[in-house]
Amino acid sequence: MKVIFLKDVKGKGKKGEIKNVADGYANNFLFKQGLAIEATPANLKALE
């Protein structure tokens, strides 16, 4: 799953980066902790 990092995550990505991560990692950790959002077309456009 492609995500946009909202904060730096050690060993995974930095704020503003768009990366592929495992679905479970994104859903169970990144999204719940507010560290990333899904890289949907709307979210990508808002990032610009």
Rank of each mutant, 00 (worst) to 15 (best):
I18W: 02
A26N: 05
F31E: 02
K14W: 09
N20D: 13
Q33K: 14
G11R: 05
K2M: 14
A46P: 05
L44Y: 03
I18E: 03
K14C: 13
G16V: 01
A39R: 00
N28D: 13
L35A: 05
A46E: 11
A42H: 10
N43R: 07
L6I: 11
K7N: 07
D8R: 07
V3D: 00
E38S: 08
A39Q: 00
F31I: 13
K15G: 03
K7L: 10
A26C: 06
K45T: 10
L30T: 00
K7H: 10
E17L: 02
A26P: 03
T40R: 03
V21A: 03
I18R: 01
A46H: 11
K10Q: 12
N43F: 08
L44I: 13
E38C: 07
V9S: 02
A22Y: 09
L35Y: 12
G16A: 03
I4Y: 08
K10T: 10
I18V: 13
K32H: 07
K15V: 09
I4V: 10
I18M: 07
G11S: 06
V9N: 01
A39F: 11
G34H: 09
A22M: 10
Y25V: 08
P41I: 11
Q33R: 14
K14P: 01
N28Q: 11
K14G: 06
L30C: 04
A26G: 05
Q33P: 00
G16F: 10
A46V: 10
L6Q: 02
M1C: 10
L44N: 04
A42G: 10
L47V: 10
E38Q: 09
Y25R: 05
F29T: 08
N27S: 12
A42S: 11
A26E: 06
K14D: 06
I18F: 04
K32P: 15
A26Q: 05
M1E: 02
K19R: 10
F29L: 07
F31V: 07
V3T: 00
Q33I: 09
K32G: 07
A39D: 01
L30F: 03
L30N: 00
F5Y: 07
A36Q: 01
F5K: 01
K12F: 15
K15C: 11
L35S: 03
L44E: 04
D23G: 13
L35R: 02
K19W: 08
E38Y: 06
G24C: 13
K19I: 11
A26D: 06
K19M: 12
N43K: 06
T40I: 05
A39G: 04
N28T: 09
T40E: 03
G13E: 04
F31W: 03
A36M: 03
V9M: 05
K32E: 09
K19E: 04
A42W: 06
I18N: 01
F31G: 02
K32N: 08
K2H: 09
I37S: 03
N27T: 14
G34E: 07
G24P: 07
K12A: 14
Y25M: 06
K10I: 13
A22D: 14
F29M: 06
F31H: 01
V9K: 00
G13Y: 13
Y25F: 11
I18C: 09
K15D: 02
G11M: 06
M1R: 09
E48H: 13
M1Y: 09
K14F: 13
G13T: 02
L47T: 07
K12Q: 15
K45L: 14
I37M: 10
I4L: 10
K14L: 11
E48G: 12
K32L: 11
A22L: 10
V3H: 00
A22W: 10
G13I: 04
V9R: 01
N20C: 15
I37F: 04
A42E: 14
N20Y: 15
L44F: 06
P41L: 11
E17N: 05
N43C: 08
K2R: 14
Y25S: 05
K2Q: 11
G13K: 01
P41K: 09
V21S: 02
A46T: 10
D8K: 07
F29H: 09
A36T: 00
F5P: 00
G24L: 12
A46Q: 11
K45R: 12
K32T: 12
A22E: 14
D23T: 15
L6E: 01
E48V: 13
K2G: 05
D23W: 15
K12L: 15
T40K: 04
K45Q: 10
A22V: 08
E48I: 14
I18L: 06
A26M: 05
K10E: 13
A22H: 13
N28V: 08
A39W: 10
Y25T: 05
V9D: 00
K45S: 11
F31Q: 02
G13N: 02
L44R: 06
F29R: 07
Q33S: 09
G11C: 09
K14E: 07
E38N: 05
P41R: 09
A26V: 05
F29V: 13
N20V: 15
L6G: 00
P41F: 10
L35E: 02
V3L: 04
L30G: 01
I37L: 09
G16N: 07
F5D: 00
K15S: 07
P41D: 13
K2N: 10
K2D: 09
K19A: 11
A46W: 14
I37C: 08
A42L: 09
T40W: 02
F31K: 05
A36G: 04
F29I: 13
G16P: 01
K45M: 13
K2V: 13
K15M: 10
N20H: 14
F5H: 01
L30A: 02
K10A: 14
K7G: 06
K10M: 12
D8Q: 04
A39V: 06
F5S: 00
E38F: 05
E48D: 11
G16T: 00
K19V: 13
E38R: 11
L47S: 07
L44P: 02
N28C: 12
N20L: 15
K45E: 11
A39H: 05
I4C: 07
P41H: 10
D8Y: 09
G11H: 07
K15T: 08
G34N: 09
N20F: 15
F29Q: 06
I4P: 00
K2Y: 14
V9T: 03
G24H: 14
L47D: 03
A39N: 00
N20A: 13
K15N: 04
T40G: 04
G11A: 04
M1K: 10
V9G: 00
G16Y: 09
A36E: 00
N43V: 10
A39P: 02
V21N: 02
E38G: 04
A26W: 07
I4W: 02
K10F: 14
I4G: 01
K19L: 11
K45H: 10
K10V: 12
L44Q: 06
P41V: 12
D23S: 15
A36I: 07
Y25P: 06
L47I: 12
N20K: 12
V9I: 08
D8P: 04
E48Q: 14
P41E: 13
G34P: 00
A42T: 10
I18S: 03
L47H: 10
V3N: 00
E17G: 02
V9L: 06
I37N: 01
E17M: 07
E48R: 13
L6V: 08
K19N: 04
I18G: 01
K2P: 08
M1W: 05
K7R: 13
V9Y: 04
D8T: 12
E17P: 00
G24D: 15
G13Q: 01
N27E: 13
K19T: 07
K19D: 03
F5E: 01
I4F: 07
V9A: 03
K19F: 07
L35Q: 03
A22S: 14
V21M: 07
L35G: 01
Q33V: 09
K15L: 07
V3I: 08
Y25C: 07
K7E: 10
E17F: 03
K45I: 11
I4A: 02
I4D: 00
L44A: 07
I18A: 03
A46L: 14
K2L: 15
D23C: 14
G34L: 07
K15A: 12
L47C: 09
V3M: 02
F31C: 04
E38L: 11
K2T: 13
V3F: 01
K12Y: 15
E38D: 04
A22C: 12
K12V: 15
G13M: 04
A42K: 10
L30E: 02
V21T: 03
N28W: 10
G11T: 05
A39L: 06
F29S: 06
V21W: 02
L35N: 03
A22Q: 12
D8N: 11
M1Q: 04
E17Q: 11
K32D: 07
M1S: 05
G16E: 01
A26K: 03
A36F: 03
V3S: 01
L30Q: 00
G16C: 08
F5W: 02
N43L: 10
G16D: 04
Q33D: 07
L6A: 02
M1G: 02
V9C: 06
L44T: 05
L6W: 00
A36K: 00
L47N: 07
L30R: 01
P41C: 11
E17Y: 03
G11P: 03
T40Y: 03
P41N: 08
D8L: 05
M1L: 13
N43T: 08
K14R: 13
K14Q: 09
D23K: 15
G24T: 14
D23R: 15
D23L: 15
K32A: 12
N28E: 14
K14Y: 12
L6P: 01
I18K: 03
F5N: 01
F5R: 01
K45D: 07
K10D: 12
K32Q: 09
M1D: 02
T40C: 06
K10P: 15
G13C: 06
A22K: 12
N43S: 08
A22I: 09
F5C: 02
I37V: 12
E17C: 07
L30H: 01
K32W: 08
N27C: 14
K2A: 11
K7P: 00
A39I: 04
N28I: 08
E48S: 13
E17T: 06
K7A: 13
F5A: 00
A26S: 03
G13V: 06
E38A: 12
A26Y: 12
A46M: 14
G24W: 15
E38H: 08
K12E: 13
N27L: 15
A36D: 00
T40L: 05
L44K: 06
N27G: 07
